[in-house]
Simulated assay, not measured.
Amino acid sequence: MLLSDLLGCRVLDPDGTSLGTVVDVRFRRGPARRTREADLQLVALIVSPRSRMSYYGYERGRVDAPAVINAIMARLHRGARVIPWECVAEIRDGELELGVTAPRIPLDPRVPIGEG
């Protein structure tokens, strides 16, 4: 699977309700190998209910965006959330169907899970 296969896909919860569009993903580096770098493992999708546009890295807490760009990104992606990869049951024709109801994990780490 390629990253381009996921970006732009519509995400559906188990009852068929659209949660939004995949705008970014999160990876974790796996265990290191002696002879080569560790593999990257897909751990989560970033899903935005209002926009198909990427964040271009501005959602990460350590990036200081100009105030105007920060305001635009916040408005375009309000309600965006992290969906763990383990929740995905099926991938087909531009859609990802979740097998379970995903927890509500906000992008902002200061917001408690469930309130995002």
Rank of each mutant, 00 (worst) to 15 (best):
M1P: 01
L2M: 09
L2S: 13
L3K: 13
S4V: 07
S4W: 00
D5I: 03
G8F: 11
G8A: 09
G8N: 11
R10T: 14
V11W: 04
L12C: 08
D15T: 11
S18V: 07
L19P: 05
L19T: 01
G20F: 02
T21N: 02
V22G: 00
V23N: 02
V25Q: 00
R29F: 04
P31Y: 11
A38H: 04
L40F: 12
Q41C: 04
V43C: 12
L45C: 09
L45P: 03
V47C: 10
S48Q: 07
S54T: 15
Y56V: 11
Y56I: 08
G57V: 06
G57R: 03
Y58Q: 09
R60V: 13
R60M: 14
R62Q: 08
V63D: 12
V63M: 08
V63S: 06
V63Y: 14
A65W: 02
V68Y: 11
N70C: 01
A71Q: 12
M73V: 13
A74T: 12
A74D: 08
A74F: 00
R75L: 12
R75K: 09
H77E: 01
H77A: 01
I83E: 10
V88S: 08
A89K: 09
E90F: 05
D93A: 10
D93V: 03
D93Q: 10
G94W: 05
E95R: 15
L96D: 02
E97R: 14
L98A: 05
L98T: 04
G99H: 05
V100N: 05
A102H: 03
A102Q: 04
R104C: 11
L107Q: 06
D108M: 12
R110E: 14
V111M: 12
G114D: 02
G116E: 04
